[in-house]
Write a protein that binds this DNA or RNA. Structure first.
Lengths: 240, 240
DNA sequence: CAGTGGTCTAGACCACGGA
DNA sequence: CCGTGGTCTAGACCACTGC
């Protein structure tokens, strides 16, 4: 763990434990440098992290202030995700010891549509896995996932992996690293299939997350659309 | 404009104009330093920006690669927003010369609920503006906004501002600076009022953005809930 | 083990806020 | 005008990749 990450973690716990309260001004940066025994560049990098988490506001010429960690972000129980994090459902629930299972509705190899081929930087002549599955936590349906992945990038995927965590297979067994994702969020209505799979009413609104995911060398490896039940919430911190 | 911002802009246009193509490796960092005549720290900061925009993938020990700028992010026409940006509807459409108007349904002064008071770091004994308005672009309803703002922070707000851009009033007339926002995104169904205001069918899904917005000194000044028509899309780039 | 990106430093200097 | 945060540099050193 890098020095700036340690400083950021230390400052974060000071804020969360109330050493610095909402509205308080943090010590001026030269003092923070002395307090943590690091250079100003390192302190800056640590503060960058806290700012992205939405914990502080920095005002040039004035000071650095603790933001009231709005109750919005506190209620992160249940099904939820946070922007800036790049994790799958399995990882999302690992910390809470919740069981994640999957109903696999389809697992085939097909040619991608033009849209999918373009996003995955491949030709429609090549092949992709097509996976359709319902994901459940403790037996309760949470979302339906439609996933396309080039077989050339992710060889050897079998139904066992699809029933569990595909990301585990990619990272732990294939030794690839997942880097980032581009996402588009929308509100949609369920199809007839989704009504049955998710056990929702036909008029229930769903939260759609459409994404292209990339390995750490920038190669796109997954095009997926996920429809979440309406108790799903997505958190974002925006900055100017 | 800072040096690193210039370098980032230059690199971005090189990527967008195809000098570097998806999958290409950028020059190694010492070379980038020479090319742009800056130090490695400055190049790093510029690359940080491009990474957040989702344009590059950086791999320690290997290189920096151009990501295929997934067609997802290209289709940013119409009603849309991007995470990491902190703008209102008015600014959102300023660049496209689209006319933004408002139907004000309610503009009153009330005591905040506990939830709102907590988020705005105030007591339920104090007062907030309550604003309910439909926002339209070129006469077409786009969303319904429910906003609470402490009168103590935003004095002198009148219906004229509410019919136009409240953010303009805050920044240009009050001289305050808006800093950041904490947001929660969900899918919901419209109320009866919303069906009428937005001219949508009663079963149409809406995209809810609930947010607490902060001034640049970390003081929360707005609690709002916005319900967007279902053509609204929200873009996010997530990193590990 | 060579190539490449990331971290870290000390210190100079710049830009903004606020009295 | 002073207090405060941000930018920038040159260079040392660390950590990972991949042959």
């Amino acid at each position: 763990m890098s020095k700036y990450a340690k400083v950021a973690a230390a400052l974060q716990s000071e804020i969360e434990q109330g050493t610095y309260e909402p509205g308080d001004k943090l010590p001026i940066t030269p003092d923070l440098c002395k307090l943590y025994g690091v250079s100003n560049t390192t302190i800056k990098k640590a503060l960058d992290e806290l700012e992205q988490l939405g914990l502080i506001a920095r005002r040039r010429g004035s000071g650095i202030y603790v933001k009231s960690a709005s109750s919005l972000l506190k209620g992160q129980q249940g099904s939820s995700a946070t922007s800036g994090q790049m994790t799958g459902l399995t990882a999302e629930f690992a910390r809470t010891k919740t069981t994640v299972t999957s109903d696999v509705h389809e697992f085939t190899i097909v040619h991608p549509s033009q849209e999918v081929a373009d996003s995955l930087d491949m030709s429609t002549q090549e092949f992709v896995y097509y996976i359709c599955r319902t994901r459940l936590t403790e037996g309760k349906p949470r979302n339906v996932e439609y996933t396309y992945m080039p077989i050339s990038l992710i060889p050897g995927l079998v139904e066992e992996h699809v029933r569990g965590s595909i990301y585990h297979y990619i990272e732990d067994e294939l030794g690839l690293k997942i880097g980032s994702a581009h996402r588009v969020l929308r509100a949609v209505l369920p199809t007839e299939d989704e009504v049955a799979w998710l056990k929702v009413e036909s008029g229930a609104p769903l939260f759609e997350v459409r994404q292209v995911a990339y390995l750490d060398d920038g190669v796109p490896f997954e095009y997926s659309t996920v429809h979440h039940t309406s108790d799903y919430e997505f958190y974002v911190v925006s900055t100017h």
